[in-house]
Design a protein around this nucleic acid. Sequence first.
DNA 1: TTACATTGTGTCAGTTTGACTCAATAAAGA
DNA 2: TCTTTATTGAGTCAAACTGACACAATGTAA
Lengths: 250, 250
Amino acid sequence: MDINDLDTASFIPGLSVDNVIFGFHNNQLKVLLLACKDQKHWMLPGGYVLKTESVDAAAERVLFDRTGLHKVYLQQFSVFGDPKRSSAQLVKGLVKSMDLDETLNQWFLQRFITIGYYALVEFEKVKPIPDPLSLACDWFDIDQLPRLIFDHQAIIEGALIAMRQHLNFQPIGLNLLPSSFPLKSLQLIYETILGKKLDRPNFNRKILSLGILEKKEKQFTGAAHKAPFLYSFKKKEYYKLLKEGIGETF
Amino acid sequence: MDINDLDTASFIPGLSVDNVIFGFHNNQLKVLLLACKDQKHWMLPGGYVLKTESVDAAAERVLFDRTGLHKVYLQQFSVFGDPKRSSAQLVKGLVKSMDLDETLNQWFLQRFITIGYYALVEFEKVKPIPDPLSLACDWFDIDQLPRLIFDHQAIIEGALIAMRQHLNFQPIGLNLLPSSFPLKSLQLIYETILGKKLDRPNFNRKILSLGILEKKEKQFTGAAHKAPFLYSFKKKEYYKLLKEGIGETF
DNA sequence: TTACATTGTGTCAGTTTGACTCAATAAAGA
DNA sequence: TCTTTATTGAGTCAAACTGACACAATGTAA
């Protein structure tokens, strides 16, 4: 698809959605990013809101377009509305690198307010698909991000903070893992999101006490140590807990 | 000020902010609402975002215009972006009741996406000021709300849910109280936000253990029972705790 | 003087947490 | 085959926290 086919007239002007799409692979939390055509920056997969569409639906559409996935955990977390969030100079450079017609030029030069969503997806199920504005679509380790456009770095950080807060209410990590997984993977996810090490025995005790995990067969990885048990989660109990929440302090 | 002086050209079209302003009075959590000119509905104090202004600044401006207050706890919590959130029929009725010129007519008839904020203010310090779109500005008990326009009922409910989640991370209630207050008031706020009764001795033990409260003189209310001690909060320790959060489960 | 509502303080069993052991075990190396 | 190594599963234990109480103290009204 050519960029110039983008029908800007059908979108709400000045408004966008940006998705921070998290995956987990090689014991690392990763984010899906797109390469800008200026070959200098990367950006979050984002898009615009159709005039007849809900904002949530727009975020789902963008997610589907980049990953081929439907019905994953997708959560709106913050609006980024600083008038200076996109540097005019940078936008001009980007626009130039894309060879656009005049209408599109105007479209990209306007001020955008963006709505941040984060998504939790199963890494192996994603087939990254670049969009018409980008050269590539790839995963990056959360602690080794490339140079990002505009305030996209801050958006990712905001997503992490939001996740950290949701973690105490909802058993989040499971959305990132395949249907069966060792507890260590889940622990690593929690450690990454919380930004601190957790005690293994204590973590296992707590997670298992939630009653949403089911023990499966052992996993022989070929590594020189005891093989861990795999677990899968009981969907019914999981969704019940998602609704109710866990860490009620008062 | 006349409505027809509203300079719509200086605002971002299709975007608004709505503030759920909470206060605490007579042992009740209250919300500040405006009376629509159709004399049938009430609405949240809201406004539009100037083309040169950040979204947060717009919310602060609206808050100041309705309450005369600056620098209070103001927290963005959700975007309401359903294309059908404002019924076309209702809008037409409202527009008719306001006697607008053609430009303004068009302005109000467009689809709006609104960004929800909630604010915590000290009831006694507020001087409610109606805006040019409304007939009155008044407080309502959170559990005795009048008929609200559009999805404003859902926005208020969303604010309550957001607060409930923040409560575990931040000692929120204090923003609603005067500089010194009895612990019972704070407990009532927590009970309202959480929607459940709390055990008084246990609540006091927990709140005091946070180390952000300072015991002051007794309060003689004239009621036929023991006079409670008043407490004020230690700002320094309070802000430290606000940053760090309290209820870390993992 | 008594009654009453509400407060300050305290108890206590049960649960959860944080910081630890330690034996079991899958594979690699000697 | 025996030993080594990394990691897992299971368990211990003191300290902290929680939920559910009890009870005396105290301003005012009857």
